[in-house]
Nucleic acid binder design. Sequence first.
DNA 1: CGCTTAATTGACCATAATCAACCAGGGTGG
DNA 2: CCACCCTGGTTGATTATGGTCAATTAAGCG
Lengths: 238, 238
Amino acid sequence: MSLLTEKLERRDRLSEAEKAALADLLEPPRTVPAGADIVSEHSRPHHSTLLATGFAGRYVTLADGRRQITQIGVAGDFVDLHSLLMKQMDHGVVALTDVTVANAPHGKLRKITEDHPHLTRVLWLDTIVDAAIHRQWIAAMGRRTGLAQLAHLLAELYLRLELVGQARDHVFELPLSQPVLADSLGLSAVHISRLVGELRDSRLVEWTHPFVRITDWDRLVAVAEFDATYLRLQCDPV
Amino acid sequence: MSLLTEKLERRDRLSEAEKAALADLLEPPRTVPAGADIVSEHSRPHHSTLLATGFAGRYVTLADGRRQITQIGVAGDFVDLHSLLMKQMDHGVVALTDVTVANAPHGKLRKITEDHPHLTRVLWLDTIVDAAIHRQWIAAMGRRTGLAQLAHLLAELYLRLELVGQARDHVFELPLSQPVLADSLGLSAVHISRLVGELRDSRLVEWTHPFVRITDWDRLVAVAEFDATYLRLQCDPV
DNA sequence: CGCTTAATTGACCATAATCAACCAGGGTGG
DNA sequence: CCACCCTGGTTGATTATGGTCAATTAAGCG
């Protein structure tokens, strides 16, 4: 079963016809090297892009060249499903590691919205979870300390990676540099370094790049005030 | 024509059948007083709620009781359209002023997704614009100064209010207190007061509560690094 | 008319940014 | 093979944006 089908089925059961539509959706995978754009800012794509392996980052560039990463994409994520309806990208998507991606032509996606209402809702839900993730980032950036913010990001990434079989037993590979984490949390790279040290010192995580082991999940969740509801991990008919 | 139809038609033309489905969607309006929840955190609504008049705020509550507002809803916004598919709310929605709202039962919304693929896409687009707004807030909170953040919020609200006829000639009514703005921007109320003073002193806005006049739109946009692409204001077939 | 919330201002404090130096590792070219 | 360079990680010193505390005034409301 494909990665995409597997992931969507974690949210709701799919029929055979729906699985067939998904199987027919994707073009052959291609690779994008770390640092290159998967989707450019302000572009008008004619396909959406599924991230098959690696990590991607949605980002917006500021006038002075600095950037803010607004979400981290992991395997199984559509990085720009919304471009089907937004038409023009409001942000870019960059490969944070070497990645493989597969195009889903907008024509086929649109056909799904015409022929498969239930599958359409499942895809819609995917963009809704993106928005929920954004809201948690806003709450963390606005009202939590840097330490809680970093702890929250680790908890989020662990659960999202676990969902697609990329993490287990509170251990996962996180091949992201501290400058990338800084752009994600809206902090400086120097401060990220200090925060990682703090997490290590307080025995919440073991972090031997690129591997992270969450040694005390409960305390990490407490520090982050993490509540997984927003990831919509449970299976519920839509 | 109803407020909802009018607003959605700014994004794409609707057929008569679609307008009829929308006309049949909403229950009679009800009022909610300022300060009361329109939708509670973690609830499982059986209808989505359209904001007909007034201002609403999506918020998440932190362990110590403080809150972060993650989006400000204006007339014409579905404040919890995503509850159709999320099932459980990942946040609450509070009335920031006295408001009137109308329920859209999930049964009827679901029927729209079965019978009206195009209208479904238009509604989907509405949740996608919400996500885009979230991303701009993240960028502002992470990488912009408080002044730019406040300027950005004013520009966003002005354009969104203009879209539904609630603002014109760079003047609009903003009946939100500084503590509410503080919870929205992730700053303290004291700091908001100083920032408002700064905006006034630099002759960017005249702000005689509750009315805001943007006296120099171009400079405000420059200070905020505001780019309206993300609001998807242009009409484009989906 | 007194209670509560909002707005403003001043003094002081803290979280995180910036600047700077240094070290480690990986890739490249001589 | 090794020197070099670039990026990333770490640590220290200093600075700054914005928070907290506190006091005062103004404004809405029973």
